[in-house]
Amino acid sequence: MSFTTKSIQNTISEIQQVVDPIGAELNELDGRLGDGDLGVTMINGFNNMKSIIDDMPEDLGQALFSAAKAMTAVSGSSFGTLMATALMAAGKATKGREAAEWSEVPELLQLAQDAMISRGGASLGDKTLLDSLDAVIKATTGINDPEEMQKAASNAAKEALAEFINKPNKIGRARVYAEKSIGLEDPGMVAICRLVDAIPAK
């Protein structure tokens, strides 16, 4: 079994089924530090991606690009733009292929991470979803089995969340409330935890 358009379709379908409660939780978290639209972005984004999965091409790169397009069409928020940026970075690297090895996934995540850093201007250590993703990449590198990979990713995302909870946010709207953000979970980091847990491990 390898990573194909089918894997992307399954992932979007599974997450879309549970996105409403995740979105509600994220809206509440984001309302304390940001503008409270993170959950809305997630809900609208996954609903729109779900609506186009039947038209996804076999070409992995094109499939990831079509997901990015669907994400940007419903949201101009920075989180939506960064999600689309991540999907496009992975899409560029897989253009023209119909399958990738599972062991390549951490490399694709790394490309996504690099693109989000370059577009969004955040750095590692700023207490953003990038810190969660960094932990996930480190924990999954070298693993070839998707089930094992998901477990490692889930643990890593939770550990990152715990590690950063007592640090201040250093970028974005939450930076204004840097002191207040100490002791609070970063909404973007929580989002990564919930998304990883919702991914079907097959």
Binding site: T72, T85, M88, G91, K92
Partner: peptide, 16 residues
């Protein structure tokens, strides 16, 4: 910012 970031993405999409 928004115009630049979105045009960056559109140009990348066009490249595909």
């Amino acid at each position: 910012g928004g115009d630049r970031m979105n045009f960056d993405m559109a140009c990348e999409m066009a490249e595909m």
